[in-house]
């Protein structure tokens, strides 16, 4: 069973790279699922599919299936799976549920990790590729489950009641209410009281969530992490931040893919003399190629992982065969092992 987590800033081609890895795994005969967070049409276009839903859909490639994340649906699952039926109903009927489900900071990341764990545990797949949600710092996907468990499991209650023991609602009302009334005085209206009520109900999902967080942690520590970046400054700084935070939460990256890279040979070949427009243009490409070589070395040193350039294409790859050829063999070997 192979689990591959693909991380990186938004816009670096994570979805495409995830699909390319998945196509490769499927072509090696592994029954493969790729999970994406992006709107259906993106993965759809890449895989030659029309629509992808939260249920896995078979692609035109044998052994390759695709599924999309639904953060909101994941929270309904949490309520139904981990709370008793009465509390679950109350949670789902709370006016804040929809709003909260969609906007917890780690909501999408948790949904991704939870969906991944669900599929990894199902026994249906030999390989699961997760295109992780973009997030500042990139580690959110890896920490979401424990973050949310912590949020649900005590921080709030501890502040409100001074006790970690999940007690009766009565205790919460007695001890917590004066503080909440003050807070509501700032906010206006019973907003925080209602939200606290909601979180208190959510508290009963703690044991289930904690178990899930353990499970997710174990899967991630045993998974293969692939960092994707482009040579642009913003994605690079995110990749570097990720490298700092990763060792605490998951396996060190197996490989860093420098997507949309120029040929390294251009740094010398195009460094031509002359002052005409042609020479200046060629030297521009030489300078850009040289910058990318420096960048590659820096990534290699700071992330302590091999960096593999993925060539820049004039147009995004369309169709399965183009996807299968996107990643250089040396990069694929680092990710899925030599064929």
């Amino acid at each position: 069973m192979k689990v591959i987590a693909v991380v990186g800033a938004g816009g670096v081609g994570k979805t495409t790279v995830s699909a390319a890895i998945a196509v490769d795994l499927a072509r090696r005969g592994l029954r493969t699922l790729v999970i994406t967070v992006d709107p259906a049409k993106r993965l759809g276009t890449a895989l030659g599919l029309e629509g992808v839903g939260s249920e896995p859909v078979e692609t035109s490639e044998p052994d390759l299936w695709a599924a999309m994340l639904d953060a909101e649906e994941s929270w309904h699952e949490v309520a139904r799976r981990y709370a008793d039926p009465t509390v679950a109903r109350r949670l789902e009927e709370n006016p804040f549920f929809e709003a909260i489900a969609g906007r917890f900071p780690a909501s999408q990341a948790f949904a991704a990790a939870d969906t991944m764990a669900e599929h990894v545990g199902s026994g249906r797949w030999e390989a699961v590729v997760v295109d992780t949600p973009p997030s500042a710092g990139g580690v959110e996907f890896f920490t979401a489950a424990s973050d949310i468990t912590e949020l649900v499991g005590g921080r709030l209650i501890k502040i409100l009641t001074g006790s970690r023991v999940p007690g009766a609602r009565r205790m919460f009302v007695v001890v917590g209410a004066p503080v909440l009334r003050l807070a509501d005085n700032i906010l206006g209206g019973p907003v925080l009281t209602e939200v606290a009520d909601f979180l208190f109900d959510l508290r009963t999902t703690y044991d289930g969530l904690a178990e899930r967080a353990e499970e997710i942690g174990a899967i991630l520590r045993a998974s293969t992490t692939v960092v994707v970046t482009t040579p642009e400054p913003a994605p690079i700084s995110e990749a570097l931040q990720f490298g700092e935070a990763l060792p605490e939460v998951a396996a060190a990256p197996s490989v860093v893919l420098l997507n949309r890279a120029l040929p390294a040979a251009w740094a010398d070949e195009l460094d031509v003399p002359g002052d005409d427009a042609l020479a200046r243009t060629l030297r521009g490409w030489a300078a850009e190629s040289a910058r990318q070589i420096r960048l590659q070395r820096r990534l290699e040193t700071e992330l302590d992982a091999p960096v593999r350039p993925v060539p820049r294409l004039a147009e995004a790859p369309v169709g399965l065969d183009a996807l299968a050829q996107l990643l250089p063999q040396r990069a694929v070997d680092r990710i899925v092992g030599p064929s």
Partner: peptide, 28 residues
């Protein structure tokens, strides 16, 4: 700025509560 409470210690406590609840209250 907006706290009606004059005591600094209480403000600190309030910030902690806001920190948790603002994650959940839409718009805050």
């Amino acid at each position: 700025i907006y706290s009606p409470i004059p005591l600094v210690a209480e403000v600190g406590r309030m910030v902690r509560i806001f920190d948790v609840l603002a994650e959940a209250a839409p718009g805050v």
